[in-house]
Design a protein around this nucleic acid. Sequence first.
DNA 1: CTTCGTTTTTACAACGTTGTAAGTGCGCTC
DNA 2: GAGCGCACTTACAACGTTGTAAAAACGAAG
Lengths: 337, 337
Amino acid sequence: MSKVAPTLEDVARVAGVSRATVSRVVNGTRNVDPDIQETVRNAIEQTGYTPNRAARSLVTRRTGTVALVISGTSGGSDVFTDPFFGRVTAGVVDFLRGHSVHPVLMLADSDPARTEVVEFLRQGSADGALLVSTHPDDPLPARLVDAGVPSVLYARPGRPMPISYVDMDHRAGGRMAADHLVASGRYNITTISGPMDVLASQDRHAGFRDAMARHGFPYVPTAEGGFTAESGAAAMHQLLTECPDLDAVFAANDLMAQAAVDVLLEHGLRVPDAVAVIGFDDSAPALACRPQLTTIRQPVEKMAAQMADLLLADLEKPGQRPRSAIFEPELVIRASA
Amino acid sequence: MSKVAPTLEDVARVAGVSRATVSRVVNGTRNVDPDIQETVRNAIEQTGYTPNRAARSLVTRRTGTVALVISGTSGGSDVFTDPFFGRVTAGVVDFLRGHSVHPVLMLADSDPARTEVVEFLRQGSADGALLVSTHPDDPLPARLVDAGVPSVLYARPGRPMPISYVDMDHRAGGRMAADHLVASGRYNITTISGPMDVLASQDRHAGFRDAMARHGFPYVPTAEGGFTAESGAAAMHQLLTECPDLDAVFAANDLMAQAAVDVLLEHGLRVPDAVAVIGFDDSAPALACRPQLTTIRQPVEKMAAQMADLLLADLEKPGQRPRSAIFEPELVIRASA
DNA sequence: CTTCGTTTTTACAACGTTGTAAGTGCGCTC
DNA sequence: GAGCGCACTTACAACGTTGTAAAAACGAAG
């Protein structure tokens, strides 16, 4: 049972000055006599005063809070076991904490949930939105733009719209994988793609296939996965059936790559001796996997931080033109390829 | 550039009624003439009105937000790659979303950060706190209690204090592991404990050792780990040196168990043929590991949901006595033991 | 046709802050 | 010593909502 929170009024009474003076001391301290400042500070100390956030927000129209929205995922709440989202969260939290801004976590995996997100922001419960939207036909980005909510996307929007975003050159990543496999002398190269209704998957795949074609491999056996371990295992089985003499696999993320390795080993195929495997992302599973995965690094934490940075910049001076930041992937060579 | 948000006043003008009436329609709709209700609803629709959260909070003293605080971790922000925290987050988010309450994510890994958390809550930026505090000497729980902030802990507090919490019977979990290993005929049983300054680690270890003693094994070779893969690998190496003929390892979490398996395999020791390995938690790595881990399941998501439930109950009717909920572990038998 | 209850609506005072305009004191100039 | 800036402080009106007390509308009863 806490004592009622002290207010500016209370502090002012104790210090023997007016509310406005106390307010000026609490915020930017301009034009306040040093002696009085001292007195007021003591009074604040003594009363244990803390400014009330709601009252402050009401007049400043700022909350010091942004929404971190995971949108367009089908799967519900097991998103948080996916290392990707953990990394996004880490990057965002890490950046924001230096700016005394706090993220509110929201899942927008259904239409009512999306409406709730829009409402939340229109109510002014948060100053802006950081949106991790995987599916190009996700209506949320457009709805946020329409509502005039300052927002930044992770990954470019499905259709062009005036909104800032960070992204990576996924095609370049796919290309790197192809180059590396070809350079290491593989001939029967296959790939496990991500879900084809995700832009990043399309890009990784396109980059990979283009580079393969340039290397003289016009056709690449492909199985579509869903970015999960199970789907990766299933895809690997499928590839082994269709193409028993394969000697390399490029998987569109590490989770699937790891599952692929397991399936290969079960079939008595040694990695990388018999089959080279290359993953994507360079997240925890890449290191946990035996052999450790050669993979294409996506600097997720940096990108997430940049996303937060763009949003804060927009909040700082509103109405700027949308900005984008594209990051480069990096080939990380370990044991699997 | 969004048009200025419409206010109650605007809606009232359009509907030709007073603010208060509109307010009553928006909230609990008692004592409003159905015809007028209809008119007001249309006006709301037409103006695109959304209640302002700050103004509402100011008078109701509720924000519809709770803080989800990860406290006492040394490691900074790679917490989010630990499957445990992902599962906590998933459980919390999943429960809260059904109650239109949103979690604000906060890291309290330093003293200033802890102060910021307390300030945040005292400011009324959130209605209460969900605290995942691992170290028993973490000052945050006591500070929150002192500040009169409604809070619920994941894991019992280091020292008794009037605060609600959820926890698991970690001793029972340790016991189960011991029983299983002994029952399957192992003789040279060893263990990789969690960090000993964490209560859960102490309990798991104590339960394990007690049960071992009861089975006639008074001494169990032990190496202390830090719940990370690296520390697990190091601990496994240490055990192998001290005790080369070991035939079983109980690791205090799955991450370390997985690393232990890898080290064993590198040493040419087959799992479970030569050495049985049993983990703890039943999180993603347990399934990703080859062989899949036999482990002690901790129902993290359920516990996290319960934690949120307790907090919401306390917010609903404040001033109730603290409550606790203790969950039972479960032995999950897979391939590793 | 008045009077009384009931139901519905309205006006108004909070809630705790910020920002602005008006005030107070004080030292300076002429 | 009156007038004038300057530095600082104060009183007051927002901000958009909720809740309460007072007022209005409307039947029903006397």
